[in-house]
Design a protein around this nucleic acid. Structure first.
Length: 223
DNA sequence: GCGACAG
DNA sequence: ATCTTGTCGC
């Protein structure tokens, strides 16, 4: 981690992304996951203090079995397309503090559904060496047709004729979510795993619980 | 040149 | 991301 570069102008960071792109694997998962982690961060507006956390759930019951959170400081501002350089450092520290490493991790943001295929889920997966899924609430790159307003309807997202993931109507009367693999699995894996993690909310449980956890860390509420 | 643009 | 009440739809 100490040897990894996180700061620089977008030209330098783009070079890093182009190099990381070569390390991505989209080979199907060989074993179904037994545990899945949800990772997210939370910040107070205008502050550089970041609360990063990872919640590990049993994939079968979707009940949390472990979690870790850290307080860190972001070094770079948010720039569309370079989100990982801002979030992964803190997330990786939370990963190191985790007693139980999950088989796969779901992150709030994109995986390969990114101009250079290196969204936050991809970057984290390559650094932590764990298969990841990118679950974003808004599109960043790629072309797609909006899915019908029917729960479960889905369309594919492609970037320059390249399949990068899906636009999925996870719940009725809700905007769709964008699913793509980060690394270590196929698009189909990312989709099926995400579908199994839905429990009546727009966001799948790993992402939902991770968001609640880091938000609780930030506001210091009980729970 | 113009618009778009994860968290 | 975060700041925020009521309100519309199922």
């Amino acid at each position: 981690m100490e040897k990894v570069q996180w700061q620089g102008n977008t030209h330098e960071l783009r070079k890093i992304q182009e190099r990381l792109r070569g390390d991505i694997s989209l080979q199907p998962l060989t074993q179904p996951p037994r545990t899945i982690g949800g990772a997210d961060i939370s910040l107070n507006r205008g502050s550089r203090v970041v609360y990063a956390g990872i919640v590990v759930l049993d994939f079968e019951t979707l009940q949390p079995i472990a979690r870790s959170g850290v307080v860190d400081e972001v070094e770079v501002p948010y720039v569309p397309g370079y989100l990982s350089f801002r979030e992964v450092p803190a997330l990786y520290r939370a990963w190191q503090a985790l007693a139980i490493k999950p088989d796969v991790v779901m992150l709030d943001g994109h995986g390969i559904m990114h101009p250079r295929m290196v969204g936050v889920a991809t970057h984290f997966g390559l650094v932590a060496e764990v298969p990841t899924i990118g679950c974003a609430k808004k599109p960043l790159a790629g072309e797609f047709i909006d899915p019908e307003f029917v729960p479960g309807d889905i369309t594919t997202v492609e970037y320059q004729k390249d399949m990068r993931g899906y636009c999925y109507r996870s719940r009725k009367n809700c905007r769709p979510i964008f699913i793509s693999p980060g690394t270590g699995m196929s698009c189909e894996d990312a989709l099926s795993i995400t579908q199994k993690c839905l429990r009546g909310y727009r966001l799948p449980e790993p992402a939902r619980l991770a968001h609640a956890y880091v938000n609780q860390l930030r506001t210091g509420q009980a729970g």
